[in-house]
Simulated scan of single mutants.
Amino acid sequence: MATGDKDHHKADWVSIHQQTCQLLIPTRTSLPCPTTERERKRGTEQLLRRQKYIIDAAFSTAQELVWAGKHEEARPAALHALRFSIEVYGSDSLQLLPAYLLLAEACAGAGHLPEASQYLSQAEWIILRTPDCSAAVQHKLHRSLGLFCAAKGDFEKALYHLANDVYLASSTFGLTSIEASGGYFHMADVFFRQNKVDIANSLYTEVTSAWHSFLLKSLQAQQQVPKSRPETSVFTEDREVSEEPLTEAQQVEGIRVLNAILDIREQAPTQQPGETARVLHALAMLHYLLMDVPKARELGLKAFELLKQLPQQESPEPLGYLLALMNVEPSSTK
């Protein structure tokens, strides 16, 4: 066996086989013929459950590896998710889209752009064959296409796809949703790479605002602020507060996006204390929700020090509430 084949086999085993090898055996071997219709139905249902479990395990493993920046290691697991999805749902099912997009992201991240292009083409073909495909699904394809074009350096085409991403996500989740903000963030990155800094900064502000609002609502839900008295809450918003906890994907995206914007704000030639404080406040809330109180306290205090430099441009009340939750007295800090 060639060295490359050994390395691929090792990555394949580490990423997915250890989780699913026992389940793979009954899906790949012939079982005794069932004697009754009831046994046949039960066997079919059991096989389907195992296949779906393998799909979920493989996809989750690949997703976590991509989030960790281990794109090459993610490819075998993503391939398992795709292969079993095809077995369960058929070769042209919309259910294959997540696996195709994840495979494309893993391949692009590992530098295999032609392979990534093939998977994106398959995903695009599936959506074209599904005329009633929802905007919530289509926006994910456009985001993947936009990121792929940006990786190739085709910035105009990247902006075209990312603009479609924002439009479709906004029509489904709302103009100020964090789903739509993802497209804005990637558009800002493209403009930044084109040295169109003013446009990029404007979009980064939109992204920060969306996350800030979302995290305020999440913190409100966690602290069970009475909905019947919104006028007394420091988190008053127009939309109803979501009681759903942050998903793992939202946690990862929030940390990545907000830290990237914070780096840009802190390294900018012209400082904007208000914008930097807003990013810091959002990150502090996110870390608090993730139960990393020391980091939340550090970020919250940095935000408070910046807000003190501003002539009443932004109310410090929500930030003060967050610091109070952590038993921090910012007025006594130096």
Rank of each mutant, 00 (worst) to 15 (best):
L319W: 00
L79A: 08
A188T: 05
L24K: 12
F148T: 02
H287Q: 05
P131W: 04
T276P: 05
T29H: 13
L96M: 00
E305P: 01
E73A: 10
R83T: 09
S91V: 03
S170D: 05
L299A: 02
Q312Y: 15
T35E: 10
R239K: 15
T247N: 01
V328A: 02
G153P: 00
L258S: 05
N195Q: 06
I127H: 05
K217F: 01
F173D: 01
A77P: 11
E248A: 11
P76Y: 03
V252W: 11
E266R: 06
R256Q: 14
A104M: 03
W125F: 15
I178E: 01
T29L: 10
A210F: 04
P32Y: 06
R42P: 07
N195D: 10
P316V: 03
L175F: 02
N195V: 06
L102A: 09
V293Q: 10
T176H: 15
D263C: 13
Y321M: 10
H80P: 03
T236M: 15
F191Y: 11
T270S: 11
L94M: 14
Q267E: 12
R256T: 14
K6G: 08
V234P: 13
I199K: 09
S332E: 02
H281C: 07
V279P: 01
S233G: 09
A277V: 15
S170Q: 13
R50V: 12
T232G: 14
L258C: 02
Q313F: 14
P34W: 06
F185S: 11
E64C: 08
A282C: 04
K140D: 11
P26K: 02
E237Y: 14
T44W: 07
A99H: 04
L323I: 12
W67F: 15
L289R: 03
E305W: 00
Y100L: 13
P131Q: 05
T276I: 07
L113W: 12
D7S: 03
L101T: 09
L31A: 13
L290A: 05
D132I: 10
L301R: 01
I25K: 14
A200R: 01
E37D: 03
H161W: 08
E329H: 15
V252T: 06
E275M: 01
A99E: 08
G183C: 09
A249H: 15
A110E: 14
R265T: 11
V293D: 02
H17A: 09
L162H: 03
I86F: 05
L283N: 11
L219D: 05
F304C: 03
S85Q: 00
Q267I: 05
A78N: 06
P269D: 14
D7M: 07
C149Y: 07
Q251T: 14
L289Q: 01
V197K: 06
G43K: 12
A158T: 07
Q250Y: 06
S117T: 09
Y100W: 12
P98L: 09
K140G: 02
A163I: 00
Q267C: 04
K70F: 10
L162M: 04
D12E: 15
I178D: 04
H287Y: 13
S242Y: 00
I264T: 00
A151H: 14
S233H: 03
K140P: 13
Y119N: 14
H186T: 04
W211M: 00
Y288I: 00
Q222H: 10
S331W: 11
L325W: 09
D292F: 05
